[in-house]
Amino acid sequence: MEFRYEIEGGNFSRAGHASSAVKKILKQLNVDNKVIKRVVVALYEGEVNVVAHAEKGSMMVDIDEQRIRIRIEDSGPGIPDIDLAMQAGFSTASAAVREMGFGAGMGLPNMKKNTDQMHVTSEVGKGTQVEMITWFRQ
């Protein structure tokens, strides 16, 4: 099963909609609650990253009997140093975004921690792609 959601850059009032829709699907499919809890963290952080940093993006979710694969792609500034971006506490978020309680440099580490595999690719000036896989049988 494949689902695709568009994410609007800069629109914080819609941040979380895609994650919430995927959570509902996983519940309907009776996926183990522990798995849902982890996946939801990764989905939301990925969605917020697009909202906070990019112009636009999309979240593609592919679910089969064994695993969920999430691919988030955006058109945006890209990440010059992915290793640095992965470090807890590192953030390039604006002051306005930080004031809302985002931009603490916890997003990417949270995503890595809550998925079984994560792969980030990025091109400066073009955009970023994040692929995450989580297996249902832990």
Binding site: A15, G16, S19, Y44, M100, G101
Partner: peptide
């Protein structure tokens, strides 16, 4: 318990 009062707190509260 928080002092953040904007809409995004509900997305977080609901997802969690």
């Amino acid at each position: 318990i928080t002092l953040q009062s904007h809409k995004n707190i509900m997305a977080v509260a609901s997802l969690k």
